[in-house]
Amino acid sequence: MDWLYFLELFLSGLTKGSIYALIALGYTMVYGIIQLINFAHGEVYMIGAFTGLIVASILTLLGLNTLSILLLASMAAIIYSAAYGFTIEKIAYKPLRQAPRLSPLISAIGMSIFLQNYVMIAQTSDFMPFPSLIPDFEFMEPYAHIIGSPELVIILTTMVVMIFLTVLIKFTRIGKAMRATAQDKGMAMLVGVNIDRVISMTFIIGTALAAVGGILTACHVGQINFYIGFLAGLKAFTAAVLGGIGSIPGAVLGGLVLGLTESFGTGYISSDYEDVFAFTLLILILIFRPAGILGRSTTQKV
């Protein structure tokens, strides 16, 4: 067995899986709180990438160095996407909170289509090149044949974000309020939790994570268009369901399992069927563990 090849596939799977996990967290957190699949979530990821591109282009003209461009563009993308997440909830979901469950779902699909078309009209339908904002680190040169600097940055960033999120949810006031709200909204209200604020916060955090994923992927892949949110969203949704929708550790695990499956599948079997592996895995897991790997009965929602 070629261990180097295996390692290479493993790391590229980990990279992909990290991105899926970042986006899947948004799906799963929102589902945990209001039992809604936010179909517009992939679009917020795409908008994050576009914001990054625009800000990066301006800053490049101003002559800043790559690393500060990356940081500033990411910050702008996070803020802009979070504002979108906040607004989407307020206009598309909040008015429908008492409505039958199908209504917000349809509203979510409508929001997704609207945002795609809006970006297509406001920008362009062509692919646009995205600058490689992640520099090739010198210390990485000896390992360049196994893992590139962008992959390393993606994996490390994701790890840091996960730790941050875990601490937030386990130990902070808003984290406790989020868990309480996910478990019993009415009771959370009776102890004084402002449910609207918790729901808004959930959207803000989830979409901020998607924006991070959007920027990192765009740097890695090198091009974006208005449609990238669709497949990324679908894969991340798959990851969230795989892990057990509503479960935060599940979203991370689901993302990694999905990324690794795709990577090993394309590496050892055939590169033509990347998406087939993802969805075959989904079907298999749903047959044998309908609630997902860490499905609801064994883990915490949010």
């Binding site: 406790k176 868990r179 478990q183 019993d184 009415g186 009771m187 009776l190 939790v193 929602k301």
Partner: peptide
């Protein structure tokens, strides 16, 4: 209406 997945301490914190 205890929060079932929060610990006793966390329920009291709430």
């Amino acid at each position: 209406r205890i929060f079932p997945l929060l610990s006793v301490m966390e329920n009291l914190d709430m």
